[in-house]
């Protein structure tokens, strides 16, 4: 068993890491520059989105382009709130996201446990099935699944958007399985010898150990559901049930896009997920770190 290591920033700094060759003359400036450049590269489109949300129509399309608005306006945000029932859609989206996260937390580690810590003959075939599913082009299953839900009379309800999470997501099962592999067998064996049932062992020994990895899976699932577009689009008909991601359609029309309000809505859409990521990050990055994803 390898002891769980917590990253030690102080020690790392004094002893040096694998990549400190970028450190020129003992200063950190090159590093900071690299970080800033990287962050700028990735967040630039978002920066454009953010500043455009505060621009008036004339400033948005200006040649040559200018990043900052000549005059700041909140008009686009007002317009975005006027065109889509933001709070209602936010509530719908949060409900679906919450239940998806719950479903994932209930099902994925359970399956991952069967694929890592229970010795049974079905383990390998089952793992192959999980991996094989990941390779399946989603277009294959789209229509048959739609017909299935329609047959069950569940279109225009949240069931098609929620139930699948309670039955496990291959990517996350695979990820959690890789984590559970590194949980020492001795702990589980000890519990079994003590006469603890399998479910109890799983619930009281394995799950608490897996908490960081569960947080990772939760954040991933949250963000996927948050940004999911196709499924809400296909399954929801009643506009009062819409999620935020399909609310964006209000800003598109056959002949173009209402840029300002769209950008404002997009900023409003991204912020909650960003907050979830920032909150989850503490568990998140440490999470997989201690898990030994192999």
């Amino acid at each position: 068993m390898r002891p769980v290591r917590r990253p030690d920033v102080q020690r790392r700094r004094s002893k040096g890491s694998a990549v400190d060759w970028l450190r020129v003359g003992g200063h950190w400036s090159v590093w900071r520059l690299a970080v800033l450049l990287l962050v700028l590269l990735f967040s630039f489109p978002f920066l454009v989105m953010l500043t455009s949300a505060f621009k008036n129509a004339a400033d948005i399309f200006h040649a040559p382009p200018q990043l900052l608005p000549r005059s700041w306006t909140l008009h686009n945000f007002r317009e975005a709130f006027r065109q889509i029932p933001f709070w209602r859609y936010l509530g719908n989206t949060l409900l679906i996201c919450g239940l998806n996260v719950l479903g994932t937390l209930l099902s994925c580690p359970l399956v991952a446990y069967a694929l890592s810590k229970i010795r049974w003959r079905g383990q390998m075939p089952m793992l192959m099935i999980v991996l094989g599913t990941m390779m399946l082009p989603p277009q294959v299953t789209l229509i048959p699944i739609y017909l299935l839900w329609n047959h069950a009379g569940a279109t225009d309800s949240y069931l098609p958007l929620i139930v699948p999470a309670f039955l496990g997501t291959p990517f996350l099962i695979f990820m959690l399985r890789q984590f559970l592999m590194s949980v020492p067998d001795e702990l589980i064996e000890a519990a079994r010898i003590d006469g603890s049932s399998e479910l109890r062992t799983y619930w009281s020994i394995v799950l608490p150990l897996a908490r960081p990895a569960l947080a990772t899976a939760a954040v991933f699932q949250f963000v996927w559901t948050w940004t999911d577009f196709l499924n809400p689009l296909i399954y929801l008909n009643d506009t009062s049930k819409y999620t935020l991601s399909i609310g964006f359609y209000n800003f598109f029309s056959e002949n173009g896009v209402e840029w300002g309000p769209l950008m404002a809505a997009c900023v409003l859409f991204t912020l909650p997920a960003l907050i979830v990521f920032l909150l989850g990050q503490r568990y998140f990055v440490e999470g997989i770190a201690t898990s030994g994803l192999k």
């Binding site: 789209l142 739609y146 017909l147 329609n150 689009l233």
Partner: peptide
């Protein structure tokens, strides 16, 4: 979406 709905037994 229009097509998906029309392909089903019960239309939306």
């Amino acid at each position: 979406k229009q097509l998906a709905s029309m392909s089903a037994a019960k239309g939306t």
